[in-house]
């Protein structure tokens, strides 16, 4: 069975740290940073490489800051 590898690119400057992506991720890839962006928001970060590219995070992101890639490896 082909394994699926995903990756997300987060525009951390536009992220407001609402955490809805974190809740929506089935593989617990995302968390909120300890650092803040230039607007003072803690932003979404990846905490492991388990992403399968399901897009749930991007779909619920109110600010459209997540771009998702998915490849068969």
């Amino acid at each position: 069975m082909a394994k699926v590898q995903g990756d997300v690119v987060i525009d951390i400057e536009q992220c407001k740290g609402c955490e809805l992506c974190n809740v929506a991720c089935p593989l617990n890839v995302l968390a909120i940073s300890a650092e803040v962006n230039s607007k003072g928001y803690h932003y979404a970060i990846k905490v492991n490489g388990n992403c399968n590219g399901c897009s749930n995070c991007a779909v619920v992101c109110p600010d459209g800051v997540i771009t998702v890639y998915r490849a068969k490896v």
């Binding site: 590898q5 490489g49 771009t67 998915r70 490896v73």
Partner: peptide, 25 residues
């Protein structure tokens, strides 16, 4: 420091599955 989990080699146009629409500014 946070560890880097980026996988830049799969970030190609053909692998793109979600991107903010251009109808938003």
């Amino acid at each position: 420091m946070t560890q880097n989990f980026d996988i830049p080699e799969i970030r190609t146009p053909e692998n793109l599955v979600y991107k903010k629409t251009s109808v938003l500014t």
